[in-house]
């Protein structure tokens, strides 16, 4: 038996909304330690990795008697989650050898209980081994700032060059009709931590990435006030959104290189 009671359905709604356009079908791997999801986009350029820990406060109850994999169409899951109020408590339930995933939405005032079942899918997905590595540069910034940068630069071109150096981080785009550059300086003196821009630098990195994917990742902006970008030369960028009281959502994007 698997049963996970999440205090805020809005968290799961935001997660699925941020994933469903790039990653249509995904396996939720459930174990006693929590729920993980790894999925690649159809072009095999980007990867997402979600971790929701069972011992975090976001789960009121969590039970998973044996490891199970729940193959779900995320577009369908998004439709089901739209039936839940943002303040509803949501319970996910499945049997040990499941072919159905049940969603139960309890309204805050206890006056309405909704139950939806969806059929599970057999998803033959490949898992990639992502090593724990130290990155040359880790930039932490307000998530809305990163969203704005990606959105603004995507008006002019397809690729952004991210240049991390000791003074800060530069984002540059060069298209057929024009070019743009946004320079973010390190700023750790502002009062609120979530408004700070910090750069941990071991080695300078300059690398280009497809804006289409970075813009898609920023659909997760509402999950977190901050986002971190981890870079090492000639490896994928990691864009991480912490999820308070649950864990994190990470996106990995392979770089673009000069031909």
């Amino acid at each position: 038996m698997f049963e996970a009671k999440m205090l805020q359905s809005s968290v799961l709604k935001k997660i699925i909304e941020s994933l469903k356009d790039l990653f249509s079908d995904a396996n939720f791997d459930c174990s006693s330690s929590g729920i993980t999801l790894q999925d690649m986009d159809s072009s095999h350029v980007a990867l997402c990795y979600l971790k929701l820990r069972s011992d975090e406060e976001g789960f009121e109850d969590y039970r998973c008697d044996r490891n199970i994999t729940l193959g779900v169409n995320l577009v369908l899951m998004s439709k089901i989650l739209k039936c839940a109020g943002n303040d509803d408590v949501i319970t996910l339930r499945a049997e040990d050898e499941p072919n159905i995933l049940t969603f139960i939405f309890d309204s805050k005032n206890g006056e309405r209980v909704s139950k939806y079942d969806i059929k599970l899918m057999e998803i033959d997905s490949e898992l990639l081994g992502i090593p724990d590595t130290e990155y040359s540069c880790v930039v932490k910034m307000p998530s809305h700032e990163f969203q704005r940068i990606c959105s603004n630069l995507s008006q002019l071109g397809d690729s952004v060059t991210v240049d991390c150096h000791k003074e800060g981080v530069d984002f540059k785009v060069a298209g057929e009709q024009g070019s743009g550059a946004i320079k973010l300086k390190q700023n750790t003196t502002v009062d609120k931590e979530e408004d700070q821009v910090s750069v941990e630098l071991n080695e300078a990195v300059t690398q280009s990435f497809a804006l289409k994917f970075l813009c898609a990742f920023t659909k997760a902006t509402s999950l977190s006030d901050t986002v971190s970008l981890s870079l090492t030369q000639d490896t994928p960028i990691v864009v991480e959104y912490p999820i308070a009281q649950h864990g994190y959502l990470r996106f990995y994007l392979a770089p673009k290189i000069e031909e």
Binding site: S43, V45, L47, L128, G129, I130, P236, A254, I257, E259
Partner: peptide, 14 residues
């Protein structure tokens, strides 16, 4: 001209 790398190129499949 830039070309897009695949994520397979960086991480091992298992």
């Amino acid at each position: 001209e830039m070309s897009q790398c695949s994520i397979y190129f960086y991480y091992e499949c298992f």
